[in-house]
Design a protein around this nucleic acid. Sequence first.
DNA 1: TGGTAAACGAGACGGTACGTCACGTCTTAAA
DNA 2: TTTAAGACGTGACGTACCGTCTCGTTTACCA
Lengths: 210, 210, 210, 210
Amino acid sequence: MVGAMPAPTPHRRGRPRSAAADRAILDATRAALVEVGWSRLTMSHVATRAGVAKTTLYRRWAGKSELVVDAVAVLFDELELPDRGSLRADVESVVLSFAALLERPETKTSLMAVIAESTYDDALRARVREAIVERQKRLVLAGRHRAQERGELPRDTDDPGPVVDLIFDVIAGAVVHRALVSAERIGEEWARRFTTLILDGLAAASRATP
Amino acid sequence: MVGAMPAPTPHRRGRPRSAAADRAILDATRAALVEVGWSRLTMSHVATRAGVAKTTLYRRWAGKSELVVDAVAVLFDELELPDRGSLRADVESVVLSFAALLERPETKTSLMAVIAESTYDDALRARVREAIVERQKRLVLAGRHRAQERGELPRDTDDPGPVVDLIFDVIAGAVVHRALVSAERIGEEWARRFTTLILDGLAAASRATP
Amino acid sequence: MVGAMPAPTPHRRGRPRSAAADRAILDATRAALVEVGWSRLTMSHVATRAGVAKTTLYRRWAGKSELVVDAVAVLFDELELPDRGSLRADVESVVLSFAALLERPETKTSLMAVIAESTYDDALRARVREAIVERQKRLVLAGRHRAQERGELPRDTDDPGPVVDLIFDVIAGAVVHRALVSAERIGEEWARRFTTLILDGLAAASRATP
Amino acid sequence: MVGAMPAPTPHRRGRPRSAAADRAILDATRAALVEVGWSRLTMSHVATRAGVAKTTLYRRWAGKSELVVDAVAVLFDELELPDRGSLRADVESVVLSFAALLERPETKTSLMAVIAESTYDDALRARVREAIVERQKRLVLAGRHRAQERGELPRDTDDPGPVVDLIFDVIAGAVVHRALVSAERIGEEWARRFTTLILDGLAAASRATP
DNA sequence: TGGTAAACGAGACGGTACGTCACGTCTTAAA
DNA sequence: TTTAAGACGTGACGTACCGTCTCGTTTACCA
């Protein structure tokens, strides 16, 4: 962290950009998502609500998708993996907190939307991956590392990348699908049964390659 | 059973709706999705391409989302579960054909979009569930039944509903997430490792509750 | 008049046109003009109100303008010139009854409209002249003839056509302009002053060319 | 009287409206009226022709009627009453120039149309009166004043308002009726006979009330 | 008296224009 | 140079009528 100042204020001349405006805009974006949802959200709406001119929005973000990605990314960063004492408890915990996040109106309405947009927009896909998707793999990595410390999982013998990616897609995919596609509540019962399924699968894999 | 004809041409008065128009519209919708993607797709565009008036579209569908749901639903109905001889082979097969479907431009660009819309539109959500989501559970049911016939899975002792739902969310979720969110190819290698994971999980569950 | 039967039922074969439908359509047109005015009047509206299909309208009239001309023409035919005993009284009477006709909502809203349409549509102009304008000259002719009988006006020495046309344009024009352009009520006071003006003008002309 | 400046650039904030756009729109409206007439004139057509967006039209005018009123009003303002030396010559002159105006395609096709619309639209009626009708009374007033200066007419003894209104309706009405309803040319012969009629009528009135 | 031909109601059809909305850019004056 | 304000060109929206067409049905006449 030493000396890692991200941008030493390049600021050449003229009036500097308002940091307060940035905050107001992102707050307004989340509030508007809650109220009207993704498809009825407009840039003008956000600007008015933030007390800011449309020009100010477009000076910072290329469009609605980019703005919303940034606005909801911070919510995903709030996900944590407190130590519950066992791998099973850790997984159940992260499943439930991820589900809770997806049930918030801001994320429910916008996550699928920006992913949909990103299928035809490479720059946006990169932004979504960097700001939202890729960062959540840290949770899988942390859980795995903690389980290895406890002896619940064997140490890595070869590259853990593929396994981490697989587990990530399975957990995130199942939770997203249940919450947004099947549109059913994710309760403790479901989390327990889901966790059992994948931990049993992982355990079998460990035995198979001792 | 006489007289149980499903729809004995209710057609009472006036000029009947053109079935050719229906077909032309759905074809044009899929073609337009391939060419311009969901977000640049417009009703006018579809109407022109189908050689049909805009009013004819709106007489049949309430909007772009509803139209696209119907247009892509038939693609999902083409998914099948041919008997590959074992549960493992059946699962790998359905994973790969589902992945292939999601990589088609028509579906890639629109599936997430209509699901996103459906989070704020109850009627649309119902339509998506009925036309797309719920119908694919038949694949899970068929695979399960066939495996039970082969003796690979125990006969149901209690209500199989929750298990089927879980397996469905896990398989569909993982494939969708890998294909559309992580945006990585789903090859035979991934399908094999994924299948191993969940079959091992299921096997362990079977042993636990004999 | 002998043998001048206009159309001895040409009717070759098939179902004859319904005379009741004609009446219902014209009644519905006038009623709709009263309620919604010319510009909001639609053919569908008239058809529905008359309990008739749109095809039945278009089989008889080419469009809204033609229909409305026929619908209001009969109102103009109701104008009469009862003998009030003097030319002055006759003129005042016709001015007031013409004004009353123009203040009815059916005519107020549609007369100017069909005339406006007719400026770019020769067939319509001919129809308007035949069905509405030209027929009202009979009032001028009748008043003039009666005044000559009474000795209030000299007998014609040369072609009365130009004078009749002039008087017709002056009377009809002034009343229409006051009623529809200036949009002011035409009361007895105005009728008296207007009548004085043109009768004095006519009287002077008579003296000048004895 | 200080500070009574009529409009001290109220312009407070934001980009000001383009005066060039206003001019282009009104010019395009008149040109389109000449080419396609009132009923085929569309807002899109005008916008395209003026090189302007439809929204820009609607930001300034509520609809086609309002736009056309403003577009043709300036043509009426071009009417003048040059001093021809006598009341008779002045009246003949204004009759002929008014007739010439009504024979221009822009006015012929649209004047009746906007008056027709105005019979069911109070705001439009007010606009027509203010922008077109009422302003032309200045011609009657000017002619009357000039005739009084010459001694051709007696000075006003009582309120001239009713007389001016009457003369205005008679002159404007007769010319409009001849030009647009009877649809006949207004030549010098007609103008002379018409002028004789009303001047004789006025002269008789003057003698009657010395 | 049974055929047949036109008129009928209903309503879907291909069009055209509507008036609105949101986009992303631009032009102002003020900070 | 950034800001708030708001006008601008663009283009899609969903609606309303237009006038035509295709149905199945009704009503007269004529053979």
